[in-house]
Simulated scan of single mutants.
Amino acid sequence: MSTVQESIDVAVPVNTAYNQWTQFEDFPKFMDGVEEITQIDDRRSHWRTRVAGVSREFDTEIVDQVPDDHVAWRTTGGDTHQSGVVSFQMIDATHTRVMMAMDFEPDGLGEKVAGALGIVDRQVKGDLRRFKAFIEARGVESGGFRGRL
């Protein structure tokens, strides 16, 4: 099992950052390699990804969600085995720290090498930088889920 932990500060209020993160179908706009996410219900979504020429499909389930604080998930289907949490910490009224912690099980030699070389860490860091650019350019979220799961 490998673990990735990254964070970034964004210049939006905590509720704006959190609300945007709950819009899973927007992830392809800032997550490199995510082709499509289909929200099945409040807890479950189906992902299609393509990373380094490898296509995958899998389902995820929200296991814990508290508005303006965190969203935790795990995979439930497909050959990808991961879980993680994205946390949101208010820095001040207009700035938020977004922290990602993800555990994953590399599948095959290529993924094991990528994990060992820090490629996955760089991918997550890049996704967070693109999230920052996306939400700061918009200034407002495209929607939001305020339910607690």
Rank of each mutant, 00 (worst) to 15 (best):
E6V: 00
T22N: 04
D32Q: 14
G115V: 10
D107C: 02
A101Y: 03
S83V: 00
D64R: 02
I62H: 15
G115M: 10
G144C: 04
R148K: 12
E25M: 05
G78L: 11
V63R: 04
F27Y: 12
Q5R: 13
A137P: 14
G144E: 06
E141L: 03
S7M: 07
K29Y: 06
K132N: 08
A114L: 01
K112Y: 14
I119T: 09
E61M: 04
V71H: 07
E111F: 04
G118Y: 00
I135L: 09
Q23T: 03
V63W: 04
T49F: 05
T3I: 15
K29N: 05
T94R: 02
S7L: 12
G84D: 02
M100A: 12
T16Q: 08
V34N: 04
F145W: 09
D127P: 01
V85K: 09
F30P: 00
A11L: 09
I40V: 13
N15A: 01
F88L: 08
D107L: 09
I62F: 14
M31K: 07
S83D: 15
I37K: 00
L109H: 03
G78H: 12
E61Q: 01
V14E: 10
V12F: 11
F88I: 06
T16L: 05
I40C: 14
W73V: 14
V120T: 15
M99S: 13
E6S: 15
D26A: 11
E136K: 00
G143R: 01
G144R: 14
G147R: 10
V85C: 06
F24P: 11
H46Q: 08
V86T: 15
A11Q: 12
G139N: 09
R43I: 04
I135W: 07
M31W: 04
F104D: 01
Q39G: 06
A101V: 10
E111Q: 04
L128R: 05
T60N: 04
Y18D: 03
W21S: 07
A52Q: 13
E36Q: 02
A137N: 08
V4Q: 05
A11Y: 07
L109C: 11
A133G: 09
A72I: 02
F88Q: 10
N15Q: 14
V63G: 07
W47F: 05
V120Q: 03
W47I: 03
R43F: 14
L149V: 14
H81D: 15
G33L: 05
Y18N: 07
T76P: 07
R122H: 13
V113H: 09
R97H: 10
H46V: 03
D127L: 03
F134C: 10
E61H: 08
H81I: 11
R130H: 08
Q89I: 01
I40K: 11
V98Y: 06
T60I: 13
D127N: 03
Q39M: 01
A116V: 03
S83R: 08
Q39C: 01
V51F: 12
I37C: 07
R148W: 06
V124A: 12
S45P: 10
F104P: 00
M31L: 12
T49V: 15
G118R: 01
Q39D: 11
G77E: 04
A137V: 08
V86W: 11
I135G: 11
D64L: 07
G110S: 07
V98W: 01
R48I: 11
R74P: 02
V4P: 05
F104I: 11
T94C: 10
P67Q: 06
V140C: 09
G77H: 10
D92V: 07
S45R: 15
W21D: 00
M102S: 13
G108E: 14
A52P: 04
